[in-house]
Amino acid sequence: MKQEKDKIAQEKDKTTQEKDKIAQEKYKIKQEKDKIAQEKDKIAQEKEQLKKEMERKKDQFKSSWRDIPLYADWRKEEFQTVNLTLDAATAHPALFLSEEGRRITWQEPCQDLPSSPERFVSLPCVLGQLHVNSGRHFWEVEVQNAHSWDLGVCRNNVAREGRVPVSPQNGFWAIRLYNGEYWGLTSPETSLTLKEKPLRVGVFLDYEARDVSFYNMTDGSHIYTFSKQTFYGGLRPLFRLWSSDSGLLTIVQVE
């Protein structure tokens, strides 16, 4: 009887040892799984950091590349330089155009001009004669004697009446100087920091790539780009003065 009890006790001890061994194995497996999970998390974090670093360096390179002096001059070779003149039929009555159609000044009182569906009656704007439906086009505007202006492009069918915000949503792609500050006319506006005040601004319109870029032609540095925009129909050069204190804008004549 005693031998049977000892045998049963030994079996119980053996079973207990087996259970402990199994528990230890399970714990060890769990530790391995946790370690693998931590390694996976670490690898995922490192991949994400590497991705962010690559994007940062890519943006940095892109920005530096665009800011290289005289880069704008290099780009000009890729674009058709336009011998641009202004379309008097679109000019707001407060804007006076020179006889050769290249200079814009503010005139008070406003001129008595014939009404036309093409004429701006709310925004003091005027359009260039150029109609763009394809290709790459470049023109240059002298701004050294102007203190508040908008420059860019717009759809040919933008609203001429009413309070129309100048933004891509309304068919305008432009930059602005106002109260000494430069802006990209997105919605809302994007504040721009320029290394040097431009004496001339270059406008680069690439219809197929759907972007409009602006460069400071004084030092060749990049000002702003509207990229991957929704263009449809004809686009035209846009010019705006703000008031009698705005000074004058002059389109640079192509030699």
Results as ranks from 00 to 15, higher is better:
100 E>N: 15
104 I>D: 04
39 E>I: 05
115 S>E: 08
59 D>A: 13
49 Q>A: 12
45 Q>R: 12
114 P>F: 05
57 K>D: 10
94 A>D: 06
93 P>V: 06
59 D>H: 14
29 I>Y: 07
42 K>M: 09
109 P>N: 05
75 R>Q: 15
37 A>F: 06
89 A>E: 05
55 E>D: 15
71 Y>H: 14
68 I>M: 12
27 Y>P: 04
83 N>H: 11
48 E>W: 10
84 L>E: 15
127 L>T: 03
99 E>A: 05
113 L>Q: 00
48 E>D: 14
94 A>L: 11
53 E>H: 09
79 F>G: 05
88 A>S: 12
57 K>C: 13
120 F>G: 00
59 D>I: 09
87 D>W: 02
62 K>T: 14
44 A>Q: 10
87 D>M: 04
64 S>H: 13
54 M>L: 15
51 K>V: 12
47 K>M: 10
43 I>E: 11
118 E>C: 11
55 E>F: 08
31 Q>F: 06
97 L>I: 02
109 P>M: 00
119 R>H: 07
47 K>F: 08
33 K>P: 06
79 F>A: 06
108 E>S: 07
86 L>E: 08
98 S>Q: 08
72 A>W: 08
122 S>K: 01
65 W>P: 03
118 E>W: 07
41 D>V: 03
106 W>G: 00
54 M>C: 09
105 T>H: 01
56 R>I: 09
60 Q>F: 07
77 E>F: 11
45 Q>F: 02
115 S>V: 00
94 A>S: 10
93 P>L: 03
101 G>D: 03
85 T>K: 14
123 L>V: 03
65 W>D: 15
123 L>P: 02
76 K>H: 08
28 K>Q: 14
83 N>G: 07
60 Q>S: 13
90 T>W: 01
104 I>L: 10
95 L>W: 00
112 D>T: 10
30 K>N: 13
38 Q>K: 15
36 I>D: 11
53 E>K: 10
87 D>A: 09
100 E>Y: 12
74 W>N: 14
102 R>P: 04
124 P>E: 00
88 A>E: 13
125 C>F: 01
35 K>C: 02
33 K>G: 03
67 D>K: 14
77 E>H: 07
82 V>W: 07
46 E>T: 09
31 Q>H: 10
43 I>H: 05
89 A>N: 05
31 Q>L: 15
100 E>I: 07
35 K>P: 03
42 K>V: 07
78 E>R: 12
101 G>S: 04
80 Q>G: 04
114 P>Q: 07
32 E>T: 06
40 K>T: 13
116 S>H: 03
77 E>K: 09
33 K>Q: 14
76 K>Q: 15
110 C>V: 03
36 I>M: 08
69 P>M: 06
43 I>F: 06
28 K>F: 08
38 Q>I: 08
84 L>T: 11
93 P>Q: 04
108 E>R: 03
45 Q>C: 02
103 R>S: 06
36 I>W: 02
78 E>M: 13
111 Q>F: 01
118 E>V: 03
71 Y>V: 10
117 P>A: 01
50 L>S: 15
